[in-house]
Amino acid sequence: MATYLIKRVFSVIPVMLVVAVIVFMMLRLTPGDPAAIIAGDAATSQDIAQIRDKLGLEEPLIAQFGIWIGNMLTGDFGDSFYYKRTVSSMIADRVGPTLALATFTIFLACIVAVPLGTIAAYKQGSWLDRTVMGMSVVGFSVPVFVIGYIMIYIFAVKLDWFPVQGYQPISDGIGGFIYRLIMPSMALSVIFIALIARMTRTSVLEVLNEDYIRTARAKGLAESKVMTRHALRNAAVPIVTVIGFAVAILIGGVVVTESVFVIPGLGTLTLDAIQGRDYPTVQALIMLFSVVYVLINLFIDVIYTILDPRIRY
């Protein structure tokens, strides 16, 4: 197990290197010159060249790449092209809201989807099962921004239950923090509820045919415990896999949700940075997302061994 973990952690290095090359090249191959954007509409080509030089964009690509990687290894992610700040401090400022939103969303998705899927499996073929599955098809098909605007219209504009948009840091009071997170999390969690509920149902259904479920019933165990202790526990591996996927997809989804609900997180930061061709910021953000992604996968593989003693690495 320890050997396996060490191997896995080291395997992160080549992955990150590939990500680094792709991000670096994609940014420089997409049209749009950051210097031109900074210089504004009235700038001359000398002005632009001067700015390019200042930003280090006149260096050969390979040198730029080398400098970037070298700096990253010392923990320096560079300075933003626009804000006179280090990229690290900008990310540190914005990571809170995103983390809060993502955690809240996944939490919400799990506590809704897992019981729903389990009950649907238990009552297979009933109206409840069909309703849950029907809703999950709808949940899959509607994009986050549509759900977001519909929810804003109903719950904020019409019913006035929640604020239209905005974010309040946890330091300004936990009540307001949660209150403002509810709507964006709900909007964002719909697709994951659909995904996780479906997987839970399928996985539990499969397990319900197993002999040990019959054994549990033959012991005189109550149905609720048969479902949780024996069925759900054995169905957990695929469910956890999907939750892991969900977290990964969530990183992408956050970008859209944050802009719909105007939350000052990493999503909006990414969007702004891409639009402004703020190379250092975009690069750092994508590297961060990738590391998170890889770590989630590793974490899930470790969870497997806890859930199922037969899995050993």
Binding site: D211, Y212, R214, T215, A218, R229, H230, R233, P309, R310
Partner: peptide, 14 residues
Amino acid sequence: MIFQEPMTALNPVM
């Protein structure tokens, strides 16, 4: 009651 397949009649994760 006891069953035919002792392999599958026991919960593998307990």
